[in-house]
Design a protein around this nucleic acid. Structure first.
Lengths: 190, 190
DNA sequence: TAGTATAGTGAACGAATGTTCACCAGTCAA
DNA sequence: TTGACTGGTGAACATTCGTTCACTATACTA
């Protein structure tokens, strides 16, 4: 039993049990008769940086949450069953959300951002309280109505631009309040 | 201390510690002097279906993973700080991935699917080993080259269609192998 | 051939785990 | 005023936890 196999087993356990195993459980997982064997082997994984410990000694998941292998560009070859065992696993949650406490999600209605690849029904993750830069996509309230648009600012004047030729730029008559900046887009089929 | 407050505290703990607290920890979390108070209160949460238990008695996270409030349609109003405490929290991982063992992710190159809102640099989640239906987006290998296209099948004949007028349909000369069906698209800004 | 890592066993430790039971103070309704 | 319900305390339990130490067998190396 090497560390790579162990990591794979721990991940499997985590995936089904939604928590990390104890050393006893790791031992049974590996077929060890002794907890200590699991302890030592796991310590190696920690040394290699794949795992962490609590103050209480409990194992803490590092980057093995959702466990999807990220396998490069489509055209540059293809993932085989072998590459799956690689350690470049990534949690989508962790990948997309850096500030969970100030991020929320919103379902998109309307096609005003369709040329940006944001379609009706898509979900956008919005980070609240970030100051928008030019050409960033923002969720904003213009004169009382909420929209999703490009943020535009020039010479102290602020307006919104759609990613759709059929829409005109929006110049606020009274108020323009930016609720947050779009950090990512998610679309789920069927 | 009511169950709603407790749930909020447990979520906060889970978010920072990446695991669920023990009853002792719940007690300190709530300011209780006795583990049993935490035990009883948590039991209510379980009865209400917000939490689950292991065979070993350990708490298991149910739907409170990534903890993003899902707040309806953009135009239909707006999330305030209050609505965040709602229980409609969702993990993106759980939301997008139903079969983690057969799902992998791929970075998109090329603009052949741009009218579908799939842009270069986007990440697609692909479910392997699913039989593709008509008009589903698939990752396929045609005559040795990997592409991302609509799957088309009529009368036993299979070909691929792009979501871009500048691309012609692809009819396989020799082989067409479907590696998987695209189940979702992810785009991250900056 | 001798010596040294390596990989696992087995026992032991104090502390923390989930769970149960008896108890208490307040609140509310009858 | 009584009695039940609620929300919490405190002690106790068997079990499991993380961790340490001494030991063994195998494999590799000099």
């Amino acid at each position: 039993m090497n560390t790579e196999q162990l990591l794979s087993k721990i991940r499997k356990f985590f995936r089904t049990n939604k928590r990390l195993p104890s050393y006893q459980e790791i031992a049974t997982l590996c077929g060890f008769a002794s907890k200590n064997a699991a302890f030592k082997l796991t310590q190696k994984l920690i040394d290699e940086g794949f795992l962490e410990k609590d103050q209480t000694g409990k194992l803490v998941p590092k980057r093995l949450f959702a466990l999807l292998p990220n396998t490069g560009i489509v055209k540059a070859g293809f993932p085989s069953a072998a590459t799956e065992e690689l350690n470049d696993l990534v949690s989508i949650d962790e990948y997309l959300i850096t500030k969970p406490e100030s991020t929320f999600m919103l379902t998109v209605s309307g096609d005003s951002m369709i040329d940006e690849g944001i379609c009706p029904g898509d979900i956008v993750l919005v980070e609240r309280g970030r100051t928008a830069k030019n050409d960033e996509i923002v969720v904003a309230c213009v004169d009382g109505e909420w929209t999703l648009k490009y943020y535009q600012k020039k010479g102290g004047k602020v307006w919104l631009k759609a990613a759709n030729k059929n829409y005109r730029p929006i110049y606020p008559k009274e108020t323009l309040e930016v609720a947050g900046v779009v950090t990512s887009v998610i679309r789920k089929y069927n």
